[in-house]
């Protein structure tokens, strides 16, 4: 009887857990972590960067040729920086606001194949950046700030024509779900 009671308790405890469900990645029921960059943080920083970038004079007309440079991840969290870049490049390319040049190797191969008749555009701008973090705490309250920095460099002159920094700060005692 005791064994049965223990088993019943165990089943009850297991039953109390929350089963995994699908969530809208654009919704407001996502996990907010204090120790890492969440998927919604990339979306927030990326969309704000995008709004800032398209307001710069370099993007006022036409579809400039853009090449992606390096984005340095200087945080303790291991993630692919494409998570940030895609938030900018996907809407820009789909709206015909930029001509996105594939990587150097592909462009060079295309030029080599086509010879002097190559119709491979040259990059007008290079987008590069850095992601940094700052952590602090007061008692049991922890705070994490993730700093997203992007710079647009005009290749012809080698000067930065647009630069932006967005900071995502999260504070709390434990990870949570929601805004």
């Amino acid at each position: 009887m005791n064994k049965l009671s223990l088993l019943a308790c165990a089943v009850f405890i297991v039953g109390c857990g929350t089963p995994a469900t699908y969530k809208d990645p654009q919704g407001r029921e996502l996990v907010v972590s204090l120790d890492k960059v969440n998927i919604q943080d990339f979306a927030t920083a990326g969309s704000q960067m995008l709004q800032s970038m398209i307001s710069s004079p370099s993007f006022s007309k036409g579809a400039p040729v853009l090449q992606l440079g390096s984005i340095t991840n200087d945080t303790a969290d291991n993630f692919d920086t494409a998570l940030l870049l895609s938030k900018l490049t996907v809407p820009l390319v789909n709206a015909n606001r930029v001509t996105l040049l594939d990587n150097d190797a592909t462009a060079n191969a295309a030029r080599a194949t086509s010879g002097s008749n190559a119709n491979v555009p040259r990059a007008e701008y290079v987008l590069k950046g850095k992601i940094l973090e700052d952590r602090s705490n007061a008692g049991s309250t922890r705070q994490s700030s993730f700093v997203f920095q992007l710079t647009l460099v005009e290749v012809k002159r080698g000067v930065a024509v647009w630069t932006e920094e967005k900071i995502v700060t999260k504070q709390g005692t434990k990870n949570a779900v929601g805004f």
């Binding site: 654009q26 407001r28 927030t44 969309s47 805004f179």
Partner: peptide
Amino acid sequence: TESQPNWIV
């Protein structure tokens, strides 16, 4: 025509 894929706090 366009939709922002996230909420801005």
